[in-house]
Simulated assay, not measured.
Amino acid sequence: MQLSPTRTLPSRLLVRGADVLPGVLVTAAIAVVSTGIGALVPVLGSAVPAIVLGVLLSVIRPRVMARHDRADARIQPGIAYSGKFLLQLAVVLLGVQLSVGSIAQVGLDSLPIMLTTLAVCLLGAWALGRMLRTERRLTTLIGVGTGICGASAIAAVAPVIGAASAEIAYAVSTIFLFNILAVVVFPLIGHALSLDPHTFGLFAGTAVNDTSSVVAAASVFSTAALGYAVVVKLVRTLMIIPISVGLSVMEAHRSTDGRRLTGRRVAKLVPWFLVGFVIVALINSTGIIPDAPRAVLVQASVFLITMALAGIGLSTDIPALRRAGWRPLALGGMLWVLVTVTALGTIAVTAALRG
């Protein structure tokens, strides 16, 4: 009897695959269109078009599917699968962009700025979120999205805290808005302060969230700033790990009514996809992954995130977005200004200390 689950595994996988395939194909189609839009307008990337198209389709979907309840029921499991499992798988593949060598390259030069801006952003999110009375999970998503790496951080943290689709959609859209402002404003700030390319790369990589926006802002300022800005941004991705683990512990503590969390229980709280993220990054550090397959895996991670956000958009509760109102947007704007000022201030202080 104990071998029965093993014997039936192939058939169960086939049944599960058939169950989710229709909805996965829908999110894949949206991802293809969104990738095309991102190629035409690089500053947009593919993630934002995916979630916008998903939300728009979620508005018209009830009317289109009103007489096709059976078809709607068939695509629903795949939409949910894309928004959850494919999102987690994408986080695992993000590890292929990092290596011990790249982390060492950035080293002590960026670590003080990264840690300071992250601490200030998370504390600011907690304080400003309470002041604005924004919902706790939405506050967390906007805080980690602003403080770490935009949609990737939101993707990693959302399943940890059990965020709803509407909250994820609002958070991603908010982060995107201020990323676009950064592309326009940051190069002007850099020139006004007479920053050299290295310093501007550090600034942009620390204070801009999405990779496409980092690339755009650094390119507008100077091509010499581009490489370092991207490396700094990628290393910031590592902050997903301690923040997600910390949030897992907090969520568990909240759900167990204050009962003591042992080391073993804390270890069990670490999401599987974060473990996978670390393993992939360590494998990449060995240099055994050739450049061509690595590039394919990087593109795969981006496409999976696009599919996942399409699924999240399709599952979005539009009335919940309306109920959220202007306060989360105001929170995102305040945090954006806070991170920008903190990054510039910390860069100035560290430069002065180094003489």
Rank of each mutant, 00 (worst) to 15 (best):
Q2A: 12
R7D: 14
R12I: 08
L13H: 08
D19S: 12
L21K: 00
V26K: 10
V26P: 04
A29E: 09
I30V: 15
V32D: 05
S34H: 03
G36E: 03
L40H: 04
V41T: 12
P42T: 10
G45Y: 02
A47N: 04
P49G: 11
V52W: 00
V55P: 00
P62Y: 06
R63G: 01
R67F: 14
R70T: 13
D72K: 08
A80G: 13
F85C: 00
A90Y: 00
V91N: 04
V92S: 03
L93S: 02
L93A: 06
Q97A: 13
D109H: 03
M114N: 10
A127E: 00
L132W: 09
L132Y: 04
R133V: 06
R133F: 04
T134A: 05
A151M: 05
A153R: 07
A153C: 11
P159M: 09
P159Y: 04
G162Q: 12
S165K: 03
A166N: 14
T174L: 10
F176T: 12
L177F: 11
V183C: 09
P187H: 04
L188D: 02
H191D: 05
L193P: 04
H198P: 00
A204Q: 08
T206G: 09
A207H: 12
V208F: 10
N209P: 02
T211Q: 12
S213E: 15
A217F: 10
S219A: 08
V220Q: 09
F221D: 02
S222T: 07
A224Q: 14
L226N: 05
L226Q: 07
G227D: 13
V230K: 05
V232Q: 02
L234N: 01
I240P: 01
M250H: 08
E251Y: 04
E251M: 10
R254A: 15
R254Q: 12
L261Q: 11
L261R: 08
R264K: 09
R265C: 10
F273V: 01
V280Y: 08
I283R: 01
I288S: 14
I288F: 00
P290I: 09
V302Q: 08
I318H: 09
P319H: 02
P319G: 12
A324E: 02
L338T: 07
T340K: 11
V341S: 03
A348M: 03
T350N: 12
L353E: 14
